[in-house]
Design a protein around this nucleic acid. Structure first.
Length: 912
RNA sequence: GGGCGGCUAGCUCAGUUGGUUAGAGCGCCUGCCUUACAAGCAGGAUGUCGGGGGUUCGAGUCCCUCGCUGCCCACCA
């Protein structure tokens, strides 16, 4: 890695190399520290939200990983023991679907294959393709500890899952029973409430009359949106206070299209306001109806099979539910039972995975009693043991947690953690055990078979914050790294994952003693201390990216084009909390330009090292002072740039502490480009005089500062642009860097206070240079030619004459007591300046500009004065504000006076 | 039916607890191939801070109201 950088910055040429280097050299591995050797406050641990093994990297992942990587690199460079644990999720349904699709292409099905062979097949698939996303992650430069990579279905994690299940069962928190669950007829499994997405839909409300038994002319009209479920009706409910139906209490109805008679029951749930006030009761297909059925001891008639085909014997048997609906409606109409069909908007539940309409259906499932877990999870946040950023998500969290229902944790899938329960054929009892039992624990029969259901994927991922560290063993890892510091993720898995981790973490870890043997309290049982929720990445038109819309931006594609560093920087700079990111390539293009800028700054600096060497001045990067401190005797720009660097470092550290990736990124950008390159580097060109007669000490000092500040800036930037900075950093040290990676060097801190007064005087120099440049431009001075200037009211500027001459193309700067008003003169609060140049300026344009300025100044002056005359303001406003206002008023007085004079002159000149 | 955001320059977004001149990037206009960088340099234009009302000495920032827009949650047939 020599200092011979190619002329153009080419990210593809460097990124693969370092991505591979970091992994190969195990730069980011964190061996478990010996007990008690690390201050817990200096440990920073995060867990990667496990992508699905089926996943391909998308912009959401990239944002998530970029943010985590910036933070973990930042902490690492600050000297914290920084551990980022990667892994993948077995993703039950998603993976099973993937392999099933593959089987379909081969003309077979999982049923034909059989469970064992199918699961074997999925494992093969996982081995073959499951690492894709982690490979992509390596390419992003994610500084994770690959030695700790986990998979939610590995042996150790599977053991932990069984342990957790068995313990919950022993604690009486897991039960099995027949309840209404959300059933996906396509996936043929139960799914949890969270996996159902509701969509508003314009549907129909059908009103159907049910004849009263024993009264040929009487009917009760019910309303339903799912007429096919009437086959499972076991009653009709009316409100006990509904006078319209009082006379029918205790009567029976004949269920149309069947020969069944069903009772009329009274139940408060029937709302007299809705429809006809009478509601059909179908306990096997509706949660409310199920509750009514329980209250009135009614039977349940399940009318559909796992694929939502009608099972009730008769005309509709074997029909798909929607086909059955059509037929039933037709038959009802034919027999005069269908009274009305009304438009009705209702929300319809669909399977999150396959978008099939979910069927609420009575089914025997395993549930986790959630209330005691939720109580602890609520307390943990209420008591501030877990902090949310942005804070508003706390509210969302509480809302959900306080209205939580028991969690259906069983799935009728083959790919997943099989529930450790065995059914006894002899006594029908269930044996729940950690290891496969040989006999039923109730009757001793050996005729037992394992439960076929598997656990919800989120059950195992909910345990990860402690299972990845070896729980249920009380390992050193667990003692060292639990709780993790931060959970960084998108809001889409706030309930699925974040909430579950909090519940399960608080529940299980409360039983694990602290490293010193004392009892663990809630504050240390939490799985993480902070949660940072990031936004959604949308396309440039703020549209949600989706495959169907075809507007998905593939990060790998963008990276190929602009480089990982530029994409990372784009995401970071746009990641302000609370708002979604409209990903714009234009922006990425801009940050690639930034990377190029840094690249070229490096080339320039390396050239100076060579030039210096030729001139006999040797500044060795390896022996630069550890701390960059300016001394009184240093030139203005040296003290200024060091002061700016320190201020920038302080601000960036502060921003990162508050998860303000955008602020941090913008601060560095502004510093590096706007201050270091635009000003300091240009000045350095003047100072780096390698000529025979040059002041070698001054040149050496300038070069030392240049190198020091640049190197510090690289470190400052490193968490954001790890590849580019790594490349340049190694080159900077001529291939012999003081550490194996810039990521292992120290992050710049605010090690000196910035010098405010100094910046003002540098500010005046800059102001003069800018003013002269503007004047020259207006006067039409040719770019290359130099012009003399006169400066009044600020003699100190003479001290910086050389600098001003070079940067503003001034041939000679003369300090004069005053400058007569002329179109060539420009005034600021600090000085008057005139460019000596014959060519007259564009008078109308100049007049327009001055008039505009004057109006602006006068308007501002007016408002300032009215404020300063306002006694209320003077009495109540803080002194700082009043003083500021007075100073500004003074400035304005000068500016107005100068502008008026300039205008007058213009008129004189103009009339000549 | 509840709840939460957003509306600031042509575009994408910043704007900390109300306080001096509302900012950035991109785009736009003008002039420069000044040997680190044309992926660049220099100079420049651009805002009734969604509408209305209120609190205050002072409002982009707080309150009320209206409008548009996005999202989350919910077992009303």
């Amino acid at each position: 890695m020599s200092r011979d950088l190619p002329k153009a910055y080419d990210p593809t040429a460097i990124e693969d190399h370092w991505a591979e280097y970091w992994v190969r050299e195990r730069i980011f591995d964190v061996p478990t520290p010996a007990a008690g050797t690390v201050d817990p406050a200096r440990i920073f641990t995060i867990l990667l939200p496990p992508p699905n093994v089926t996943g391909r990297l998308h912009m959401g992942h990239m944002l998530n990983q970029t943010e985590m990587d910036i933070l973990i690199r930042w902490h690492r460079m600050r000297g914290d023991t920084s551990l980022w644990v990667p892994g993948t999720d077995h993703a039950g349904i998603a993976t099973q679907m993937m392999v099933e699709r593959q089987l379909a292409n081969e003309g077979t099905t999982r049923q034909q294959l059989g469970r064992e062979a199918f699961v074997e097949r999925v494992w093969e698939w996982k081995k073959e393709y499951g690492g894709a996303i982690l490979g992509q992650m390596k390419r992003l430069g994610a500084s994770v500890d690959w030695s700790r990579e986990y998979f939610t279905m590995s042996d150790p994690l599977s053991r932990a899952v069984r342990e957790a299940f068995v313990r919950l069962h022993e604690q009486g928190l897991i039960y099995r029973g027949a309840y209404i669950v959300n059933w996906c007829p396509r996936c043929q499994t139960a799914i949890s409430d969270l996996e159902v997405i509701h969509e508003e839909q314009q549907g129909k409300l059908y009103e159907i009359r049910y004849p009263v038994v024993g009264d040929a002319k009487a009917f009760v009209t019910i309303a339903t949106t799912r007429p096919e479920t009437m086959l499972g009706d076991v009653a009709v409910a009316v409100n006990p206070n509904d006078a319209r139906y009082t006379h029918l209490h205790g009567k029976k109805l004949r269920l149309p299209l069947t020969d069944r008679e069903i009772p009329i029951v009274t139940d408060d749930w029937a709302n007299p306001e809705f429809g006809t006030g009478a509601v059909k009761v179908t306990p096997a297909h509706d949660p409310n109806d199920f509750a009514i059925g329980q209250r009135h001891h009614l039977p349940s008639i399940n009318v559909m099979d796992d694929t939502a085909h009608i099972t009730v014997a008769g005309a509709y048997a074997g029909l798909d539910r929607f086909e059955a609906r059509k037929r039933i409606l037709a038959d009802l109409e034919a027999h005069g039972f269908l009274v009305a069909v009304k438009d009705h908007t209702n929300s319809i539940g669909k399977c999150d995975r396959c978008k099939t309409i979910v069927e609420p259906r009575l089914s025997t499932q395993w549930f986790l009693k959630i209330q005691t877990l939720a109580d602890k999870a609520i307390a943990a946040v209420e008591q501030g043991h877990i902090r949310f950023t942005p804070q508003q998500y706390e509210k969302t969290y509480f809302e959900w947690m306080r209205n939580i229902h028991d969690w259906c944790i069983s799935r009728q899938l083959w790919w997943g953690h099989r529930i450790p329960a065995w059914h006894c054929a002899a006594c029908q009892e269930i044996t729940v055990a950690r290891e496969t039992p040989h006999a039923c624990m109730h009757c001793g029969s050996a005729n037992i078979t394992q439960e076929t259901d598997v656990l919800d994927t989120w059950f195992s991922s909910g345990l990860l914050p402690f299972t990845v560290f070896g729980w249920p063993e009380q390992t050193l890892d667990l003692a060292t790294f639990y709780p993790t510091q931060l959970l960084l993720t998108g809001f889409d898995i706030l309930f699925f994952w974040v909430a579950r981790m909090i519940m399960l973490g608080c529940h299980f870890m409360l039983d694990v003693p602290m490293p010193d043997g004392s009892k663990r309290e809630l504050k240390d049982a939490v799985p993480f201390r902070e949660v940072y929720i990031h936004a959604l990445v949308r396309d440039a038109d703020r549209q949600k990216m989706s495959k169907t819309k075809g507007n998905v931006i593939d990060p790998i594609e963008i990276i190929r084009h602009y480089g990982t560093d530029a994409v990372r920087f784009t995401l970071a700079s746009m990641a302000s909390p609370g708002t979604d990111i409209a990903f714009s390539e234009a922006r990425t293009e801009g940050y690639r330009a930034f990377a190029n800028k840094i690249w070229n700054a490096a080339r320039f600096i390396f050239m100076q090292i060579d030039r210096a060497k030729e001139a006999g001045i040797v500044v060795d990067p390896h022996t630069l002072p550890a701390e960059i401190i300016a001394s009184e005797s240093d030139p203005l720009e040296t003290r200024w740039i060091i002061s700016r660097l320190n201020q920038c470092a302080a601000d960036v550290n502060q921003a990162l502490a508050n998860y303000r990736f955008d602020e941090a990124a913008n601060l560095i950008y502004q510093f590096f480009w706007g201050e270091f390159c635009d000003w300091y580097l240009e000045i350095a060109k003047i100072r780096l005089d390698f000529g025979e007669t040059a002041d070698k000490v001054a040149t050496t000092t300038a070069l030392t500062t240049l190198l020091s500040v640049f190197e510090a800036a690289l470190r400052l930037l490193s968490p954001f642009m790890p590849f580019l900075t790594e490349e340049i950093w190694h080159a900077f040290y001529d291939g012999k860097p003081p550490a194996k990676s810039i990521a292992l060097s120290a992050y710049p801190q605010d090690n000196a206070t910035s010098d405010g007064a100094l910046e003002i005087s540098m500010g005046v120099v800059q102001e003069l240079i800018v003013t002269v440049r503007a004047l020259r431009k207006e006067l039409g001075v040719a770019e290359k030619s130099t012009t003399p200037v006169q400066v009044a009211r600020c003699a100190e500027l003479k001290d910086h004459a050389e600098l001003i001459q070079r940067l503003a193309r001034v041939s000679d700067m003369e300090i004069v007591p005053s400058i007569p008003d002329s179109p060539n003169k420009r005034s600021t609060y600090n000085f008057d300046v005139a460019v000596i140049y014959e060519k007259p300026i564009d008078i109308p344009a100049e007049r327009e500009r001055l008039t505009k300025d004057l109006a602006k100044f006068e308007k501002e002056m007016e408002s300032k004065q009215s404020q300063l005359q306002n006694e209320g303001f003077l009495a109540k406003a803080p002194a700082k504000v009043v003083d500021g206002l007075r100073t500004r008023a003074e400035e304005l007085t000068v500016l107005i006076e100068k502008t008026r004079a300039a205008l007058d002159t213009l008129d004189t000149v103009g009339s000549r």
